[in-house]
Design a protein around this nucleic acid. Sequence first.
DNA 1: TATATCTGTAACCCTACAGGTTACATTTGT
DNA 2: ACAAATGTAACCTGTAGGGTTACAGATATA
Lengths: 104, 104
Amino acid sequence: MRRMERQPTHPGKIIREDYLKPLSMTINEFASVLGISRKTLSKIINERGAITPDMALRLSRAFNTTPDFWLNLQKNYDLWQAEHSSNEWQRVKPLSPQLIRSHL
Amino acid sequence: MRRMERQPTHPGKIIREDYLKPLSMTINEFASVLGISRKTLSKIINERGAITPDMALRLSRAFNTTPDFWLNLQKNYDLWQAEHSSNEWQRVKPLSPQLIRSHL
DNA sequence: TATATCTGTAACCCTACAGGTTACATTTGT
DNA sequence: ACAAATGTAACCTGTAGGGTTACAGATATA
């Protein structure tokens, strides 16, 4: 039961810190590499936009990584947000363990 | 480099086959358990709706699973769709391995 | 058989977000 | 000082989640 204590790193930060900065690449250049608009990349870089499956595929091509790497970052980030932006989901009553155990 | 050959199972099918059916639970009942509308659950069950982070949290409560389990199913499904619904992303030119190796 | 329940689905509403173009003000680098 | 880079806003289109209501068909049950 490993709880996520801190807010997970946004994928945009990884792109910014671990790729663009070391490579001294501008947002314009990289947007062009990815075949997307400067605005879209800027939103991601500044952590106001999400990594979509299509974007994950593009990043995986550019950086020779897996699309899953990027989607997992986004998934962890989104999940943390959902956990902390509402308590509604905590109202869900777990089905009785006995019921589940006896059928599954 | 394990390619995804077949279309990944939709999370809705898991809910349907591995939970609702064994538990003999109706969609109405379970929608009520989750605190969502029948329509929303019906869309997911019939594989025309996605597992959102909030929904993953609700499912994890009800079935005593992890939210990641459900989000991973959805992620794999979405990624497969993105891979096969367009070839645009394949146009992205990988950054030269030398460039990456020398800076990262 | 008659009644009630369950189910898929459509119509309609609202909100939100991806992604694009254009434009502007500011910052940064040369 | 000048040019490039950047953040951001406005505006557009398309898509998606989620809700309610309503209807038709299937299923089950009294």
